[in-house]
Design a protein around this nucleic acid. Structure first.
Lengths: 338, 338
DNA sequence: TCAGCGCAAGACATCGTTCTCAAGCTCGTA
DNA sequence: TACGAGCTTGAGAACGATGTCTTGCGCTGA
């Protein structure tokens, strides 16, 4: 077996092995057009021979880039990722970056300690760009990034934020999403609506509710709005509570597809049929939506595309592009639960 | 207001401003004993003046370290962080590192794409050390790390793994934890036990169950073991199912405190009293345990300390220390639910 | 008076890469 | 024959910090 190598081979060694200069070796490996095919082949062979991989530290200094992009999370990770849709968003970022040589890393900055460390490494320019997943909090860090001129992409709508001309923004229109869901309920003729949403302090939840209300008005009374977690079990438990109240309702708007799945389970156990008795609409177009019985009508939030967009904008900004704002659109996915 | 600074000040500028050489400036800022107090003061003033922060790229090349430690996650983040105890573990790492100048970043490597990118940056030595949070999967990456000789800490028990002499390992003894919980049940005289656990494919779940079984034997029949998610709602739903079966039981061992919370809610709704009718024991000593009514007897898993330990070992290995294995011990926290 | 010492600070090399500039080589052509 | 064009290559300077070696200076003591 291969022995553990503790000292990485340097470009100079490759050059020596191939019998060329360091410059030539560098150019050959970077596929410069000014090097003959034969030399390239020789250098590549030598590089493979000694298992050469360019050292990130030397390279970073030379090109002025670390090729690492920080995905900044300013709330506790468990909170963020209890919503698995975020994984989708992250996958979007990774997918897009995998075409390049950039690597996304997640930087947790929920405590003051963490924020200080993060700040320090921002100042040192350890990262080429920052994608802030939850820019609602931790604005001191944003201030630092602004002063440093680090390319930054904010994910989520920051109403009237003071960084519009410095940072890029990507978000999907949650109010529009709520609008779509509520409109579908209305067109189906549902009049007594219940909403089982995610946590009340989540800005997306607030926006979606605004969308619901704009369409439904009195058909969605305050008392019928329940805030809970994003999970299956949370929806199940919430629906139990609603059924215990013995109010009349014929439609349930859910904050996530997993909530909806739990809601449907609870409704079925109570002897109610979906969609004959009650209409249910989810949110996210999560993979679970197609597995539900009946298959879930839901609002698709283009999270993956949002990730692509955020990553692309970050790359562009690294190259010097101006900040932009990009709004992604929601889409109603019609299935059988309505 | 401060104008956005796009080009960071360099050490040379500080030196010029202070009227000294670059070397002197460097030594002054690094508090070398060979520089006079007066010069130090002057250089520090100059540095503050121009807002100097040492550039990570130059520094990394000179000292041979990036001062970034990768926390490697080889399963989907949502899966990992749906268990909020992991945040605790991460906090432990961050806390410990905040004393140093090292920064932990989370590196997701669940897809092949991501693993390739990660591999590349490992080879380039973008990180000084790696803490692998879920070393059960993605062993190709471990192989790469081994060959490269990157200081690596594995979190979790990897039975008979081939890296014992190359990597450090930190884990808490899950079987012991199961042992403690089951023993408490037995001493309380409970004979018909039900277990509501986390996902079946989770190694910790398997180990804990082994601990339960070693103590309880036939008192915990196979049919009474339920695998579910880690959440409140999951426990609630699972307990509903158990109650629906109308089997006799007098104790519930839970895979997490949140599961236990859901279980207690469901029991209460069914008119059963904890601990008078049924004993409940949780796992994790999560913050929710004290908020439960009755307060939850649980098994404390020293996750934060595990994080401290992992971080410390990583730092030691960076300095050249040999790999070590460190087992953390579980502890039964007696409260009122037993 | 001057060798010898200790201290502060500067000059220069170093880390591993990329990039600029200049030079060598082979042709074809005047 | 000689000269410029075009193609490859090498020497050396960045990049921004740290580390080694050396120098300059003031002081002591013979």
């Amino acid at each position: 077996m291969t022995q553990p190598v503790r000292t990485a081979p340097t470009l100079a060694e490759v050059a020596a092995a191939a019998g060329v200069s360091r410059s030539t070796a560098s150019r050959a490996l970077n596929d410069s057009p000014r090097i003959s095919e034969e030399t390239k082949k020789r250098v590549r062979a030598a590089a493979k021979e000694v298992n050469f991989v360019p050292n990130a530290r030397g390279r970073a200094l030379a090109v002025g880039r670390t090729e690492i992009i920080a995905v900044l999370v300013t709330e506790p990770l468990s909170e963020l990722f209890s919503d698995p849709t975020y994984s989708e968003f992250l996958s979007g970022i990774t997918e897009e970056l995998s075409e390049s040589s950039y690597l996304p890393v997640i930087l947790q900055a929920s405590s003051t300690h963490e924020r200080n460390r993060a700040r320090e490494h921002f100042e040192r320019r350890s990262f080429d760009a920052v994608i802030d997943v939850s820019p609602y909090k931790g604005s001191e860090l944003l201030e630092v990034l602004r002063e440093l001129g680090v390319p930054t992409v904010l994910c989520g709508q920051l109403e009237g934020h003071p960084y519009r001309d410095v940072f890029s923004t990507v978000y999907s229109d949650d109010e529009e999403g709520g609008h779509f869901a509520a409109l579908a309920m209305k067109e189906r003729g549902r009049k007594d609506i219940v909403a089982v949403l995610g946590p009340q302090d989540n800005p997306a939840v607030v926006d979606r509710l605004r969308g619901y209300r704009a369409v439904l008005g009195e058909d969605l009374p305050d008392a019928n709005v329940i805030y809970t977690g994003w999970n299956n079990g949370d929806g199940y438990q919430a629906m139990h509570q609603i059924l215990a109240r013995e109010i009349a309702f014929d439609g349930v708007l859910c904050g996530s597809d997993r909530i909806a799945a739990g809601v449907i389970t609870a409704l079925n156990e109570a002897g109610l049929s979906v969609p004959a008795d009650i209409s249910v609409v989810g949110f996210d177009d999560h993979e679970i939506a197609t597995r539900c019985v009946p298959a879930l009508t839901t609002v698709r939030q283009p999270l993956r595309e949002e990730g692509h967009m955020a990553a692309n904008i970050a790359l562009d900004m690294i190259k010097g592009a101006e900040p932009t704002t990009s709004v992604m659109h929601m889409q109603l996915i019609q299935r059988d639960s309505l």
